[in-house]
Design a protein around this nucleic acid. Structure first.
Length: 548
RNA sequence: GCGCCCGUAGCUCAGCUGGAUAGAGUACUUCCCUCCGAAGGAAGGGGUCGGGGGUUCGAAUCCCUCCGGGCGCGCCA
């Protein structure tokens, strides 16, 4: 119920239906299922309803005839300037600007909380994203994950959810061991192509930085712990701890520069340390979904929609990655996340079915749709019409830091969420840097700059604007362009709601561009009348409301 | 081979829980602009919504099939 104007129209139609039921035009058992929607084009008014199309059969009438009857029974309202029957039987409503002035009032009165919803009702949603292994710098793909995850978190927060941002990382597995060996090799002066270089070692230049810091006894602060480089090249455990801390800190600095922070860092190793992995295995076995074959322990995930059964414990006694994943998502449920959103690169999609199956096999009352996965597709970075592939720092890929340094934090965030996450994304550095209206970030910032400009001039002329003056002059917002702007404004709450419901933050970017467009149109055409203080104040009311 | 995602204007993409002549930005064509930022405004041309079939009063949207592109199908993570 986020749009009061739409809701009022919906209620009016209900009244009309009730009237037709009373006079026998409609059967009294009629189910009033219909929608009132914003019209796509101005020719079709502000709102339209398909009610006559849907009820025509029940009424035994042609849609347009039923529409006529409904319109005749519709209560009159001052803000409705015209009601029209169009096309196959749509009823179009034309509203006066006054119908939207309440939205501006709401914006002024609610300030920063304008547009917030409460579908979350204070429930807890855990949003897990990025979750990069601490084995190197974050790349563009992580950047997309960071932007999408953070914006999902923000949008859920705006819908009344209590949001916990969570970063899960592996600090103990084979990849980390590989990292430790790579740092050790660098510390010993071994080059990547030398015979003693570890198999599949990390070859990037950043490994040299880690090794040097370790040898120099540098102190690294990450996730609330200080780790000092011990300098001993034979102590692989010490190297591992230092390397993880070092790269975790680097990732964290990049994320902070990107405007992203986390509430919880969850270590994969804690699942083992706290016995969660063993516990999960025991429960799966106890519920009869496990069996042994070829010396390994399997889970019958095919009972829960997976393609084939999966190995939980390998024949060598160690666990596959699959089991900690199940234990981890189980812990989200146990920690009280009524909703869990897991943001991943789409190359992980193969693991979704088995994790969900594992959670169901626990028989712990976890909902079938838990967790909700949001997958993002690959990012291609372009500059000068060519694909950018290399980063000095990491070697084989473009880092998030490269992008932030080159195009700035806000533009990077905007472009990384501007597309549906399941579409491949082309990140055009030239476009993102452009100071022209081709660049949507520039276009939006430019709209803001124009508002700021007017406000500044107001102050320079010694004039005052405040909320009360704005509220007193709402009725002056009566021009066509002001109405167009107010209509855009009135969509805000439902855009926020839809973005939250569908976990689609790109809806926000699309909306912002449209809002900026309405603003530019308003600015470009209206006459700024300096000798009419009242009119000026009223117009500035809207400027300020939109800015907020 | 199987599974998931994508295919919409020259380009980059919205729209996809079914609705009216399929939208935005950009590019292109014509016209306008010396008062708040012209980094502007007005108008116009441009589409078999990948192809085909089906369901429906109505399909870009739902179902089937084919084509094209990406990704995934390990006792790797």
């Amino acid at each position: 119920r986020s749009d009061p104007v739409k809701d009022q129209l919906h209620d009016l139609v209900l009244e009309a239906i009730a009237a037709l039921c009373a006079d026998g035009t409609l059967p009294t058992s009629t189910q009033p299922v219909f929608v009132v929607e914003r019209s796509k084009s101005r020719e079709h008014g502000d709102f339209a309803t398909n009610v006559a199309l849907l009820l025509a059969k029940a009424a035994g009438k042609k849609p347009r005839d039923l529409a006529s009857a409904l319109v005749a029974a519709l209560p009159l309202r001052e803000e409705i300037t015209k009601v029209e029957i169009a096309g196959p039987g749509f009823i179009n409503f034309f509203l006066s600007p006054a119908a939207y002035q309440g939205e501006v009032r709401d914006a002024l009165e609610s300030g920063a909380s304008f547009g917030r919803g409460n579908t979350g009702a204070g429930r807890t949603a855990g949003v897990e994203f990025v979750s990069a292994n601490p084995t190197g710098p974050l790349h563009v793909g992580h950047g997309r994950a960071a932007a999408i995850g953070d914006c999902i978190a923000r949008v859920l927060d705006a819908n009344g959810w209590h949001v916990v941002r969570e970063f899960y990382y592996n600090d103990a597995g084979a990849q980390i061991n590989n990292l430790a060996l790579s740092v050790q090799a660098r510390a010993r002066g071994v080059e990547p192509d030398a015979p003693t270089w570890p198999t599949d070692g990390y070859r990037g230049d950043y490994i040299k930085d880690v090794a040097r810091a370790y040898l120099d006894g540098e102190s690294v602060h990450a996730d609330g712990v200080d780790i000092v480089g011990a300098g001993d090249v034979d102590d692989l455990d010490a190297i591992r701890c230092f390397g993880v801390a070092y790269l975790r800190r680097e990732q964290d600095l990049d994320l902070r520069a990107f405007g992203v922070t986390f509430d919880t860092y969850f270590l994969e190793s804690s699942l083992y340390a706290d016995g969660k992995v063993e516990e999960t295995v025991k429960e799966l076995v106890a519920h009869g979904h496990a069996y042994e074959e070829g010396g390994a322990l399997w889970l019958r995930t095919t009972d829960f929609g997976d393609d084939k059964d999966r190995v939980m414990r390998k024949s060598d006694g160690s666990f596959t990655y699959f089991l900690p994943d199940v234990a981890y998502h189980r812990s989200k449920w146990q920690r009280g996340y009524q909703r869990a959103i897991t943001e991943l690169g789409s190359d992980h999609h193969g693991s979704l079915a088995r994790v969900k199956a594992g959670l169901q096999a626990l028989d712990a009352g976890i909902p079938v749709g838990y967790p909700e996965y949001v997958l993002h597709q690959m990012v291609t970075v372009m500059r000068g019409g060519e694909e950018v592939k290399l980063s000095k720092r990491a070697g084989s890929y473009v880092t998030l830091r490269d992008l932030i340094d080159e195009v700035g934090r806000d533009a990077t965030r905007y472009f990384l969420i501007a597309r549906k996450s399941d579409s491949q994304l082309i990140f055009d550095i030239d476009l993102a840097r452009a100071q022209t209206n081709d660049n949507p970030v520039y276009y939006i910032q430019y709209a803001h700059a124009r508002v700021a400009s007017v406000m500044r001039q107001l102050v320079e002329r010694g004039l005052v604007w405040n909320r009360d003056i704005g509220l007193a002059h709402l009725a002056r917002l009566d021009s066509e362009h002001e109405q167009a702007l107010m209509i855009e404004l009135s969509r805000y709450a439902e855009v926020v709601e839809a973005a939250g419901a569908n976990l689609e933050p790109h809806l926000i970017t699309t909306y912002l561009r449209e809002l900026a467009g309405a603003f530019h149109a308003y600015y470009n055409t209206h006459q700024f009348i300096v000798d009419d203080a009242d009119l000026r104040d009223a117009r500035l009311t809207l400027a300020s409301a939109v800015r907020q």
